[in-house]
Design a protein around this nucleic acid. Structure first.
Length: 281
DNA sequence: ATACCGACCTGTCAGC
DNA sequence: TGCTGACAGGTCGGTA
């Protein structure tokens, strides 16, 4: 489901709503698929922790959890034993984070409920279970560079000498993190580059346009709260509006908005790729 | 290194 | 109405 702009939107909402709150207790469902760390480890890491900040690393949601207990004096041991930690949530295709009242009906496919000191709950819901929950001691690093932070030269270097299709390279989270299928297609369209072009065959000028397109698309999408295709909503339950700005994604057979040629769809790396055969070379 | 495929899951929708 | 197959925002691991 969510790529960088959707995760960024969700994270901003969560940071506003749950930062400063404390996780009193945690319920974890019986399905093992969504858990990347053992359930007991997740529970023991989260329980009793204050959320200091919610931010994003690629498509991952990162909850920074306070280290040594502050405020009320717990036993000296407990305070000294607890190092700062991070709770990492990857939403996969269909994952959602829901902030709600405890009385709210539990949605089907709810895998984790964190009960907050503010008498609200933070829930992880994921029908397809491609999402992943894990905990880290600190310094979580998914690899790759942030597209909105990388400079043009470093961006160009990511693709140097790679024979893989440029679309595959854009989707490779170890290179650039956060770009998924929608934004790869939209960026390539704006840059006038076909998805199948070998990364190494791109000229300096191609890469300059691609660099600008990727950033432009991501920024515009963030400004519109992401793309809601079927079920994506942010932390406040609001839909995004960038799907209305898609120029090729999901527009197979429809006229290109620039030249009126029918938009094509081809399968690449097992994913749908949408492009204009006229505008993209 | 690369590239192609299936696997991991559930839900929805089009077509018959 | 119901069945079947294709498809869906993502990643991982195996194989050539």
């Amino acid at each position: 489901m969510p790529e960088l702009p959707e995760v960024e939107t969700i994270v901003r909402g969560l940071d506003k709503r749950v930062t400063g709150d404390t996780i009193d207790s945690v319920w974890i469902g019986s399905r093992r698929q969504p858990l990347k760390s053992p359930a007991a480890e997740i529970a023991s890491t989260l329980e009793g922790r204050k959320i200091v900040r919610v931010h994003r690393a690629g498509k991952h949601i990162v909850f920074d959890l306070e280290g040594a207990m502050s405020g009320r004096r717990k036993t000296r041991q407990a305070a000294s034993l607890r190092r700062q930690a991070q709770w990492i949530v990857h939403l996969g295709m269909t994952g959602r984070m829901v902030v709600c009242e405890p009385a709210a009906e539990t949605a089907k496919h709810t895998h984790l409920i964190a009960r907050l000191a503010s008498a609200r709950e933070l829930r992880f819901v994921d029908p397809r279970m491609f999402g992943k929950l894990s905990v880290h001691s600190s310094g979580f690093d998914p690899g790759g560079v942030e597209p909105l932070e990388v400079g043009e030269e470093q961006f160009r270097a990511l693709f140097r000498g790679r024979k893989t299709p440029i679309k595959s390279a854009l989707l490779n989270q170890k290179l650039l993190r956060g770009v998924g299928n929608i934004y790869a297609d939209e960026s390539l369209f704006r840059a006038g580059i076909r998805p199948r072009r070998r990364a190494a065959s791109l000229t300096r000028d191609d890469l300059r346009r691609l660099y600008r397109s990727v950033r432009e698309v991501l920024k515009e999408a963030i400004a519109l709260g992401g793309s809601s295709i079927s079920d994506y909503v942010d932390a406040d339950g609001e839909e995004g509006f960038f799907q209305l700005q898609h120029r090729v994604y999901g527009r197979e057979g429809e006229p290109c908005l620039v030249c009126r040629t029918a938009v094509k769809r081809a399968v690449l790396v097992g994913r749908s790729s949408h492009y204009c055969p006229q505008c993209q070379k």
